[in-house]
Design a protein around this nucleic acid. Structure first.
Lengths: 162, 162
DNA sequence: GCTTTTTCCGACTCCGGCGCTAGGATTTGT
DNA sequence: ACAAATCCTAGCGCCGGAGTCGGAAAAAGC
């Protein structure tokens, strides 16, 4: 399993915020209470609290406390790369334990014995890492929101037609 | 962390077998004792036993029992896709718990409520899955063996120069 | 100012998988 | 017979994932 439910739930949460913001730029939209998201996505509220905290610390959502409070996207969905979302939730994406990438893709393997000789598996993990990050950077939240489509019929109390 | 040490150790094990086979086709090469691999790669022998068992069950290596026994690649390194290796060690590669792909890339998400509407995150996980599998299928064991270079100087007892 | 709604925060539990070890059984060269 | 190797099953410690719980703080409405 590549990712845990943290990434799954967290992404679904973000999509839900994106859908509810609609066409409005996020600062204008009404904040969405976490309970509403939990209900819509059938996810445990108390668990979502932990996840949204990470998203907030990463600067991806903003919060409004108190009654009628909730969460908003910190910027338009189009400007949110999914790599940032997933990394906020799961931590830095490394294919392996022994694998750290510093700034600018230079990859370091903790098995590097001497300077010249590099770990045999490095080539493979580098490629895998590249594949994942490419998929995650080339997808924005707006892509997922669009894919998900509009909100399902706003539940029971729809205004009767004329 | 995308993969555990099972994948890491197992891949290093395969590379070591590939290096020791040299240019010979694997059936000809001498079988390599697991203890030799463990020593060369500084990995726990008893743990490697478990990993190599999986590789054998997957038909990637063959074994010779008894004294002077060991393991060989089941076919030339060029014909071994790393996807098979990693899947043998880690199990089927799914980005998420809720994500099963049947034959031919058709992906199924357990959250698919009704037939038409699909999970919002499906698009993302499909792309990630594609990125990983592409990296793993386009890399063969031979690539890694080549990258690793020839065996390090055969330890102490090198024949003195002339 | 009190109550309600909501975010915020830390601690706690449960459980399964990872990373390994141990101990044997079996097979085979010398 | 003995040693060298693969094979197989059990088990153990630990950590992180997947939540739960209880409460503190902040804002809205009365």
């Amino acid at each position: 399993m590549l990712f845990s439910t943290k990434a799954e739930y967290g992404v679904r949460l973000m999509v839900e915020l994106g859908r509810r913001a609609g066409e409005d730029s996020p600062e204008v939209a009404e904040p969405v209470a976490l309970a509403a998201v939990a209900e819509a996505e059938l996810l445990p509220l108390s668990y979502l609290e932990h996840l949204v905290a990470k998203l907030r610390q990463a600067g991806l959502v903003t919060s409004v406390r108190g009654a009628h409070g909730g969460y908003r996207l910190a910027r338009p969905a189009r400007e949110i790369e999914m790599l940032d979302v997933v990394e906020a939730l799961e931590g830095p994406i490394a294919p392996m334990e022994c694998f750290h990438s510093d700034r600018e893709g230079r990859v370091l393997c903790s098995h590097e014995v001497d300077a010249g000789h590099s770990c045999a598996t490095k080539l493979l993990w580098t490629r895998v890492h590249g594949g994942v990050t490419k998929a995650l950077t080339s997808t924005t939240l707006a892509d997922l929101v669009e894919f998900a489509g509009p909100l399902p019929a706003p539940a029971a109390v729809a205004e009767p037609v004329a």
